[in-house]
Structures are given as C-alpha cells and as structure tokens.
C-alpha cells in the first residue's frame, strides 16, 4: 500500500504547484503594429548589412548594388515613416 501513500502525496504536491500562484503574473508587452514594424525594420537593416558585405566581398557588381541598396533603403524609409506616424499616438 506504500504506492497509495506516494500517489496521494504526489497528487497533493501537484495540485499545490498548479493552483497556488502567489504574487503578480508576468504578462509581457502587448504586440502592436509599431512593434511589428520595428521587427520589419530590423529585417530590412539586416538585408542592407548583408548587401553591403556582399558588395565589399566582390559578389555584387556596382550597378546591381546601387539599385538594390536604393530599393532596400526605400523600404526601410517607408517603415520608419510609418513608425514615426504611429509612435506619438502609441506613446501617449
């Protein structure tokens, strides 16, 4: 019958662990469009960094590099513009 005692002990310990929640809970920040745009901005910056590196490594010809850099910078600028437009409202 030892197993019955161990099983009862296990059940009590488990119930205590599951349902006894002292203190405040960690809920984390809510995900907003600005947060999402910041992630996109980081991705575009990383793409720019990769492009610069590949250009320096001689993998990308100058004409291709200028065209792709310009395109990525436009994308980054568009994202930054929207962050700037949304941030004052989100921050208030």
């Amino acid at each position: 019958m030892t197993w019955l005692f161990v099983a009862a002990l296990l059940t009590v310990a488990t119930l205590f662990y599951v349902f006894y929640i002292p203190g405040r809970l960690f809920l984390g920040p809510e995900k907003t469009r600005v947060g999402y745009l910041r992630e996109r901005k980081d991705a575009v910056y990383e793409n720019l960094r990769d492009l610069n590196f590949e250009y320096q490594a001689g993998k990308v010809p100058d004409s291709d590099y200028q065209q792709m850099k310009s395109s990525l910078q436009d994308e980054a600028a568009a994202i930054l513009a929207e962050i700037a437009r949304l941030e004052p409202r989100n921050g208030s």
């Binding site: 999402y36 996109r40 960094r49 600028a77």
Partner: peptide
C-alpha cells in the same frame, strides 16, 4: 553583434506608408 549604420532616415520625407502586412 555588429554595428549597423543605415542612412534610410534621410528619405523619410518622401516615403509612403509601408506596404507591409499587419497580420
């Protein structure tokens, strides 16, 4: 970690809102 410097902010004025999905 590698520092990044992107002059994209200089284009802010002529930029349109980002055509990206909100999800």
């Amino acid at each position: 970690q590698v520092a990044v410097r992107v002059p994209a902010t200089t284009r802010l004025e002529r930029a349109q809102p980002a055509p990206v999905a909100t999800g």
